[in-house]
Simulated scan of single mutants.
Amino acid sequence: MRSPAESRLANQVALVRAKRLAAGYVPDQMWGSAVRKRWPFRLMCEMSCGPGWHDLVVALNELLDVEADETFRFTQIKEKFGQLRCYWTGAYPSSRIDQLVEAAEEISASMCETCGADAKMRQTRPGGYIYTACDEHARAGSDIIRVKTEKIPTRLGRIRMTRTESGDE
């Protein structure tokens, strides 16, 4: 069951995708440069994730236009353990920013990092590389897995405890 923030973000992702497809834009490996032009201050950071998450990152930033103030900026956007990871700094006006960032991270776990299609978390071999891919972009010999992530709040921010389990397929 999705949280209200996940539902809100998922709807925004669908809107961003529809606009992108209508414009005929297909993100490539350099998609981050185009997105940076729209939010130059907010995205003065490393962005190391695949083009399949373009719509998710754009949708997140569109919602942050409403929620965040001008001091908000990302310090890093990347793939880690098969999911989007967003690190940020700035004024903390509400927990809605955290909720939106966490929603993006959760949604990425079911979105192919290569093409944006519905996907599953996979692992190259027991103890190997964890990634999210659709059947078309899955690496040969990969197993479908479930990743359990527990977010633990601390004084310095939140930390994640991550473990994997065999998938149900």
Rank of each mutant, 00 (worst) to 15 (best):
E62R: 06
P40S: 04
V58F: 05
Q83T: 12
T162P: 02
A138E: 12
A34Q: 13
T75E: 09
A103I: 03
R85N: 04
T114Y: 11
K19F: 10
A109L: 09
D28S: 14
E106T: 13
A104K: 00
H54D: 15
V101S: 01
L56G: 00
R160W: 06
G128P: 05
E6D: 03
E113Q: 13
K78E: 09
A22M: 11
A117R: 10
S7L: 11
M1E: 10
L56S: 01
P51G: 08
R42Q: 13
V101W: 01
I144M: 07
F41V: 13
A103D: 02
V35P: 01
A5K: 00
Q76K: 14
P4L: 08
L9H: 01
A117N: 12
Y87W: 12
Y87L: 11
P27G: 03
S110K: 11
M111Y: 03
M1T: 11
M30A: 15
A10R: 00
R146S: 12
S48W: 10
H54P: 01
A91K: 13
R8M: 06
V35H: 03
T154I: 05
A59T: 02
C86E: 02
P153T: 05
E136N: 13
A23Y: 11
R20T: 09
C45V: 05
M121S: 10
P4Y: 04
W53P: 01
